[in-house]
């Protein structure tokens, strides 16, 4: 599967941009946290697209963001 580029993303309408990013991010996140992959992906998709593209290219930044999101999700669930 060829990498998702900024120009590919720019060519798509906003709704599809998030879907494209989600479809790429989800399998990567699922490897880290299979149980909450859907929730974590949904949280990260609210981030700016340029940062999401960067995360797709840089596993370290993706990993850091995912761990951050897991902590936020756990705090949110503890509050409920």
């Amino acid at each position: 599967q060829e990498p998702l580029t900024a120009s590919m993303l720019a060519a798509a309408p906003l709704k599809e941009q998030k879907q494209l990013l989600g479809e790429r991010l989800y399998p990567l996140i699922q490897m880290l946290h299979p149980v909450v992959a859907g929730k974590i992906t949904g949280m990260l998709l609210e981030i700016d697209n340029s940062e999401l593209l960067h995360m797709l290219e840089s596993p370290e930044s993706l990993h850091a963001k995912v761990e951050e999101a897991v902590a936020v999700l756990q705090a949110h669930q503890a509050k409920e």
Binding site: K18, G38, T41, G42, L45, E46, K79
Partner: peptide
């Protein structure tokens, strides 16, 4: 409200249109 929105986060499922778009539509 105390902000505990049970619909948050808008979960992503592959192949299913993501529901979180209404939160970010400009």
């Amino acid at each position: 409200s105390n902000g505990t929105n049970v619909n948050w986060p808008p979960e992503f499922c592959p192949g299913v249109p993501w529901k979180g778009l209404q939160n970010i539509d400009p």
